[in-house]
């Protein structure tokens, strides 16, 4: 992960969210634009968001600092990816 740039990491996070959401929500999820609203459109809750973050940590070998998360970070796929990219330690 040492050579990964921030842009790469953010894109990896967006891609992983798309892959992991069906697993967390236990249903098919169509391809997601970054503007997709997590709670209103996808039906995520605070609890399922934590499950998604846990899966992201394991998929991308990250450690996410969740206590920094705000409601604004949970608006959309894009804002969540921004948050995770900015509040993660990569495990080398």
């Amino acid at each position: 992960m040492g050579q990964t740039t921030e842009v790469d990491l953010r894109q990896q996070i967006v891609d992983s969210i798309g892959e992991l959401l069906p697993r967390v929500l236990k249903r098919e999820v169509p391809e997601l634009p970054e503007s997709t609203r997590l709670f209103d459109e996808l039906g995520l809750s605070s609890a399922s968001t934590l499950e998604l973050l846990l899966e992201l940590e394991e998929a991308l070998d990250l450690q996410i600092d969740v206590e920094e998360i705000d409601q604004g970070d949970l608006e959309s796929v894009g804002t969540l990816a921004d948050f995770v990219a900015a509040h993660s330690l990569t495990q080398d």
């Binding site: 967390v24 499950e51 846990l54 940590e57």
Partner: peptide
């Protein structure tokens, strides 16, 4: 299993 891991991790 995932809910248990969330309880432990977060």
């Amino acid at each position: 299993d995932r809910q248990v891991r969330v309880f432990r991790r977060f």
